[in-house]
Design a protein around this nucleic acid. Structure first.
Length: 254
DNA sequence: AATCCCGCCAACCGCGTAACT
DNA sequence: CAGTTACGCGGTTGGCGGGAT
């Protein structure tokens, strides 16, 4: 017994959308909206498409004010900092970049941004981070998640998720963009390990606002030290990637 | 000129979960 | 409260185009 298909696969067209299909979908949604039911939408319009496919097409391509390609350095910075802090939560990252879709950002990250970072790999600084109990969390109880870091030596340590990320989220809520530049300087020095390092950041968020309570104003240093306690932060990697980054972290709250 | 290779990106798939009955 | 349905998300795939050989 598998999951029931969302539509009749045999009678559904797949593959690239034609201009006619685009026009039908766009015209209808602009006129009547989605009606809150994507599954029924293609039948109403007379499209032989799956509702999920219609939804995706609308969200990623037909929706007004969608931007494609041409990511700015500022956008790079934002994507990078959010990836560092929350992992591959593309929809949340996209929400911080008006006109960008999660799919676009995901593609951009996987095909370009990640490679930019990998290309600047520093030798002999490997570090593995494993997430344990990845799914052992709820939106309101993030502190239950813990991560284990394993250095190249035999030593290992366990740090609670909230210890690492609570200051970060709080700061993002109050000053999202400052987070980008402040984090970048301390983390991007170790690009080759990003994927492994960031595996622990899989906690689902409802948004970036108002998540946590009071924190120290020295939060950025705390975060970087918690994440990489044995490493000395350097700005070099980020400056190569995104241009000059202030050595001193300037935050709106300070 | 032909073929191969690789990067990019649109689209699909399957899962988790919210909403509904 | 349990079962069902639909939505939203992230991972993955496949086709296309352009550069390299």
């Amino acid at each position: 017994m598998g999951r029931a298909p969302c539509c009749d696969k045999a009678n559904v067209k797949k593959g690239p959308w034609s201009p006619e299909e685009d026009a039908k979908l766009k015209t209808y949604i602009e006129k009547y909206g989605t009606g809150g039911n994507w599954i029924a939408l293609p039948q109403k319009i007379g499209l032989k498409r799956c509702g999920k496919s219609c939804r995706l097409r609308w969200l990623n391509y037909l929706r007004p004010n969608i931007k494609h390609g041409g990511f700015s350095e500022e956008e790079d910075r934002i994507i990078l900092s959010l990836y560092i802090s929350i992992g591959s939560r593309w929809s949340i990252i996209a929400a911080q970049l008006p006109g960008r879709t999660d799919n676009d950002i995901k593609n951009y990250w996987n095909t370009r941004l990640k490679k930019k970072l990998l290309g600047k790999q520093l030798p002999n600084q490997s570090r593995n981070v494993k997430q344990e109990g990845k799914k052992n969390y709820t939106n309101n109880n993030l502190s239950h998640v813990s991560i284990t870091t394993e250095g190249s030596s035999s030593q290992s340590s366990t740090t609670s998720w909230s210890e690492i990320n609570m200051p970060l989220y709080h700061k993002m809520a109050s000053n999202q963009m400052s987070v980008a530049s402040s984090l970048i300087g301390s983390v991007v020095t170790y690009p080759s390990e990003l994927d492994e390092m960031f595996n622990f950041n899989q906690v689902k968020l409802e948004g970036l606002d108002g998540l946590y309570g009071e924190i120290s104003t020295n939060w950025s240093n705390e975060v970087s030290e918690l994440m990489f306690p044995s490493m000395t932060p350097s700005l070099q990697g980020m400056q190569q990637l995104c241009g000059p980054v202030d050595e001193q972290v300037h935050l709106g709250m300070q």
